[in-house]
Design a protein around this nucleic acid. Structure first.
Lengths: 207, 207
DNA sequence: TTTATGCTGTGAAAATAATCACAATGTGAA
DNA sequence: TTCACATTGTGATTATTTTCACAGCATAAA
């Protein structure tokens, strides 16, 4: 079974769309309909769903509720998992607001900053700590995933502590490439690179 | 010449690293060194640089300054280009702060929101307008790239206006798939999907 | 000079990802 | 029942991306 990044990301997207359909009361959906909503080909949808081991019927397509369940079995962790977020600037606050409450099994549960004015507070139901307590708290809470939303000058140092505390996955918004062991999964989401890329294609696609 | 998204993104990343090296006074770099810093293979670096038409020397590798210039010729627009940002919540402010001043040819120059308290202000040197003026202003300023950082309920409507105003590239942070013409380049950067993916690989890579 | 060294540039091969295309299926109309 | 139809599941194919591997080259040391 193939679990490439790109496929996993598509499957997660299918679920988001399916949850919306489910809330709208949709019971069934065909591959080409889901494909349209996700902007991929219908063959791609069928192939991806085949890979997660879910089967539809030629007459009725896929059952929305069952499919959501199959995707959850394929993607979700067994238990609820806490996520740590480091850096309580505008970006950090935005991420908490966007994310919490949106995922069934995942929740940002611990916040960190180095600014004394930002610690020992509760933001969107989450407690904030000084970054010196990072290692202790992520170990105590068995946190395996973290978000870095600190300035790039501090990002490597934060990553080092996260790795030391046993983190296995990092979502990095700082515009640097983190130096971490190969066993750690890092997703970079540097806004500068992204916006330069969008601008490039905005221009290039029109010669 | 191949201009796939993934290659363009790598090339933009090379430049970021090279600019840092240049500021540190580095004159030359070998493919394997740049590869290390970007976490790709050295063959990949050589192939990418071949594709943009830059040549190094076997003895001295690549000249940092020249390479930066070659990448700029390959990637950058001829003239400076303004970018519009729609949605002045925490995320929008974070993007302005992260981005402006970091790119030579690109700058966020116009901000939009629907909240009257947020319009007619200057944030990090940028003026903010009511979203009703969006079309007029992006046409007047020949803006081709936009960032959507509004709640998902408003995102499609914003996209429609952007498209109507002649935008060619959209960086979308709202967790929905925008419905826009094929000719518009859209980059989705939904934080929910991203964090679910990071969590998945954090767990999966460790069985 | 000559030689040894360690790169680059790149054709060829391998690996990965997406699409094609169609047999099999199940439904509803006749 | 039977038939026409639209869709699934998937082997085969095609396209794309990455890596391999090495000839050719520039330099420095002998």
């Amino acid at each position: 079974m193939n679990r490439s990044e790109i496929k996993i990301e598509r499957i997660i997207t299918y679920r988001r769309i399916l949850l919306k359909l489910y809330n709208d009361g949709e019971k069934n959906i065909f591959s080409y309909q889901l494909a349209n909503k996700c902007q991929v080909s219908s063959a791609q949808v069928r192939r991806d769903l085949m890979d997660i081991g879910y089967s539809g019927s030629p007459a009725n397509g896929y059952e929305v509720q069952c499919l959501i369940k199959s995707i959850a079995e394929f993607i979700d962790p067994d238990k609820k998992q806490g996520i740590a977020l480091v850096g309580l600037g505008n970006l950090g606050r935005a991420i908490i607001d966007y994310f919490n409450g949106q995922s069934l099994k995942l929740e940002i549960v611990a916040l960190f900053d180095k600014n004394p004015n930002k610690i020992n507070r509760v933001i969107a139901g989450c407690h904030s700590y000084h970054i010196n307590d990072l290692k202790e708290i992520i170990i105590k809470n068995n946190i395996k995933t973290a978000v870095i939303s600190v300035p790039s000058t501090d990002a490597q140092q934060v990553a080092d502590v996260l790795v030391d505390g046993g983190i296995k996955g990092i979502l990095n918004y700082a515009p640097i490439i983190l130096n971490v062991p190969d066993s750690i999964y890092v997703q970079n989401r540097d806004m500068i690179t992204t916006l330069e890329k969008v601008s490039y294609f905005a221009n290039y696609n029109n010669k």
